[in-house]
């Protein structure tokens, strides 16, 4: 589904964000990407949707090598939700926002209607459809951003810090939703409990390279390793002292 090989990315200001990164993802996998602040998590996600272009190396998604020509198609397949929901929801109503991509694609209004309703129902936000996004709670905004992406019928979901700034109940709702979605998923987060519940595989990044790639249980129980990378044991695994 996704194959990243030997990718390097340097920011215009010279900061080397991604160094010789390679991994591949099978269909239906759910992967958590964790690591300290500035380890390159968000950069990696932006590379996967072509917002950034790597200086070298290659990214293949659904058997298509990422390039200017395939970008449009790849973005149809890959849905990306931003860390700050407010950046993603810029239309006057929730409905318009979810319909945004579809209308840009020239899909007829009937089908738009159906797909928007469908996407909003999946995330359980149908009742918000006429509300302006800026009046939603952080949890509601998060669900809507996921709906905006689901409406495009992607095969792969990329989520940047989906549980940031959510209250426990909203976070729980999100976890259930993510568990139920059948898509191939890559999630960057600092919420290790979320990774434990939603992702069977984990990649740990440090200074733009992969320092661990394997089953989630193995790494999230390795306390010294986690500490080394500015992480800690998931709360549910911590013994009460």
């Amino acid at each position: 589904m996704i194959s990243v090989s030997n990718v390097f990315y340097v920011y215009p200001d010279g900061h080397e964000a991604i160094r010789d990164l390679s991994f591949s993802v099978q269909k239906g996998e759910s992967i958590g990407i964790i690591g300290a602040n500035g380890a390159g998590k968000s950069t990696l996600l932006k590379l996967l949707v072509g917002l950034y272009t790597p200086q070298s190396g290659c990214i293949v998604i659904d058997n298509m090598r990422m390039s200017k020509q395939t970008l449009r198609h790849i973005r149809q397949i890959v849905g990306f939700t931003f860390q700050q929901a407010d950046d993603q929801l810029f239309m006057p109503t929730v409905y318009d926002d979810v319909a945004f991509a579809l209308r840009n694609d020239g899909i007829n209004e009937n089908e738009v209607n159906q797909r928007v309703a469908n996407a909003l129902t999946i995330v359980g936000a149908m009742h918000l459809k006429d509300r302006p996004p800026y009046r939603l709670s952080e949890g509601e905004k998060r669900l809507v951003t996921i709906a905006t992406v689901l409406a495009m019928k992607p095969k792969i979901l990329l989520m940047d810090e989906p549980t940031a700034a959510l209250d426990p109940k909203a976070r729980r709702t999100l976890i259930h939703l993510v568990q139920e979605l059948p898509h191939t998923k890559i999630v960057t987060t600092h919420d290790l409990d979320f990774v434990l519940e939603c992702c069977e595989r984990t990649i740990v990044l440090a200074n733009g390279t992969i320092v661990y790639d394997g089953p989630t249980e193995n790494v999230l129980t390795n306390e010294p390793f986690l500490h080394e990378h500015h992480l800690e044991l998931p709360l549910m695994l911590q013994k009460k002292k």
Partner: peptide, 23 residues
């Protein structure tokens, strides 16, 4: 920075001025 991210969010969903739907 925000303008940059909004622009990214727009392009990811195939934005163009002509096609932006206003009812």
């Amino acid at each position: 920075d925000r303008a940059e991210r909004v622009y990214e969010a727009m392009t990811l969903r195939g934005f163009s001025i002509q096609h932006m739907h206003i009812k």
